[in-house]
Design a protein around this nucleic acid. Structure first.
Lengths: 224, 224, 224, 224
DNA sequence: GATGAATGAGTCTTCATTCAT
DNA sequence: GATGAATGAAGACTCATTCAT
């Protein structure tokens, strides 16, 4: 009932994936009906079931395809013999932005509709997602080891950076004020500084235990 | 038909809002039925309509309440006569994190279900949202004017920082490895460095036009 | 969602059961749609679900009600101090026929749609059915003990008699050529003779070419 | 479009009939889909339509084949010059049981799914069924004429006997406690006694409170 | 003769909403 | 203010059937 083989069948399958991706991203998985998808594809609603056994299967196909493509698209820097953490991080940021800006629907969907996945499917996608996060964590770990980066907490920093990068798709528009390249540069800058080893005398935040009594700069008291 | 005034009625209204918030946040607006809400409240489905004319009205009430509360909770620094941008930013980050970590469902919902709002409602919430973003932009603008901060693009930086901060709720768990305070400190550090004025000789990213051939370390100008 | 309590609700529930019984009996459970039932009842299709959670629940309600009513309607002869097996059998046959002729749809349905029951429901109905069969078996057992009846095999005879009796509903029509009473008499006669102790010299079965050369007359027990 | 002639085609046709028979008998005509049949046959759903124009045609083919086979399998006793009614009845009972026990699915289906037949098809099968019933009625009529049998009502007795015999398939299992032969003997005994001419003084039915006070024994003809 | 993709009506069930009580 | 029965449209999915390949 799924995975057609003929040329025509495969074409329909791809059109279903494309329509579903767009509609799910626009309105959310739960808010899109099979009829809407079929209408968008240009077939009867029943025809969808020649290609996917379930609405959930469509979602899963989109997400899994996306995550696998993302992972295999990343130009593994170990292969390129690049051992400098800064260079790796720069490359990662640019790769992430390019990829995510090029495929905003896939990214948005894969983030927003995790909760729509049935438990078994969720586990699969979560595992793939963690593989991707591991790439960044490895870079940060390397940078810290090389004393080229300062990280209070690798995990938290990685999540923060990814959230920041992925958030781009929520406001970036092709043809917008900034080109993808300008944005890449801005974010590389943001990210690099966020893990930069502070210069002597340049104190930043340091509030280990208690409500911030003192605030990093000039010792002034800060609200909280 | 809405906004009852009796004590019992007001209590039910609040229970409806609380149940809806939790359910909408967990499963998404479209995936939650009025019956589920009623069941969670402990009331018949029809009773909901004594308090809200529509499922959409419940969503709107939650979102609008949240945004107004967020805005009025921010301790406006102009009132506190605080004119230092760093201190303002530190305060903003801590405020944002505290508030968002304390009310993760409201935050998550207000971000995720914008698309579930009917156009007129969307406009209202968007306006409130922009008011909040403006707070951060004003701080960054001030910081740049004071030459205490370096920002390639105020708007982009604001969005990046907000995405980073708001992303916390997607992984933060009370009782987790890190306390809210530790996280605040880490993020203050991340944010501060991300807009830090680079030290002399500390060049960061600068990739105006081309795919990164070489990577910007050690003061070398890269990719131009 | 099931078992309404108000008067109107209970009335609708009964009308659903009545319509379903008739339609299921006429066309078979699988061939009757919820819409057909709703149309017959005179409500919208969705209203059925205020009274029964599932189509299967309707079937189960009909069958279980029927079997329990059948069992509690049987005038237990032990209570009436009737210890003569012939009289008990006479009474059983008349009871069975009256009851089954009076409720042909219930009987037919309970026999025909056993396969439409989900496993758990099937077990429940099967247990009730066996309780009923046990009544007849007990009578036959008693008759054999009292040497008033001859039975080659209690179980087989009971099944044969029940099949014979229940088969009436497949051709009996009120207002037909025979009254219910005439039929009762005919069947009492058939049944009584089928378990009658054969008279000396009265040869019955004749099996010419096959194994069983001699047939169980003369009180001899045959192959069991 | 139906009745292919090639060897392969004929084989598929037979496999369709066999699969349909089993599935219809198990779950009922209405509950079995063409896809299920195709799956069971090991063929695409569309292929069924090379052999039968309609699902109804499959059912009809099974039923008609069965009824015609049943009728032509009966070893007509007039051909065998057997004029004794007892011997004919013995033979009929054994034939009926053997045939029905050997082909339980066909028998069950032909009984259960009469209602699934469209009117014209129903008429055809009904006519064949009456031909078969006529065989038994003729035997009983002969027996009564020969004063070897006592029958209150030929039609009713015939239906009762057939119901009793046919009911066997609902509980008989190959490999069960009783062999087919033992069952044949038991039923021959039951049937023979049910139409046995009662001995003088052997009272049968006893109907205490109801109309028919006396029961038509002693060779009196009752209600015809 | 078979496939598999398609159709369009139909399946059971749930939806948001209404309203008499 | 709440109930529970009702509606009518819509939900995901299956149906028998067709037909180009």
């Amino acid at each position: 009932m799924a995975r057609p083989s003929s040329i025509k069948g495969e074409q329909t399958r791809q059109r279903i994936l494309a329509s579903s991706l767009r509609l799910f991203a626009r309105s959310g998985y739960a808010a899109v009906s099979m009829r809407e998808i079929a209408l968008d594809v240009g077939v009867g609603a029943g025809a969808l079931y020649n290609h996917f056994t379930t609405k959930q299967h469509i979602l899963m196909a989109i997400m899994e395809d996306h995550m696998r493509a993302l992972l295999s698209a990343y130009p593994d820097s170990t292969k390129t013999n690049q051992s400098d953490a800064h260079i790796q991080l720069d490359a990662f940021v640019r790769f992430h932005i390019s990829y995510h800006v090029a495929l905003p629907d896939e990214v948005f969907l894969s983030y927003m509709e995790l909760r729509a996945l049935e438990p078994d499917n969720f586990k699969i996608i979560e595992a793939l997602r963690r593989n991707y996060e591991a790439i960044l964590k490895d870079i940060l770990t390397l940078g810290v080891q090389q004393k080229q980066m300062a990280c209070d907490d690798i995990h938290v920093s990685a999540m923060a950076i990814l959230a920041m990068l992925t958030g781009i798709t929520s406001w970036f528009r092709q043809q917008g004020r900034l080109t993808r390249h300008e944005i890449e540069n801005i974010y590389v800058s943001l990210v690099m500084r966020s893990v930069a080893v502070p210069m002597a005398g340049q104190t930043l935040a340091q509030n280990n235990e208690q409500p911030a009594k003192t605030i990093p700069i000039k010792g002034k008291k800060a609200h909280v």
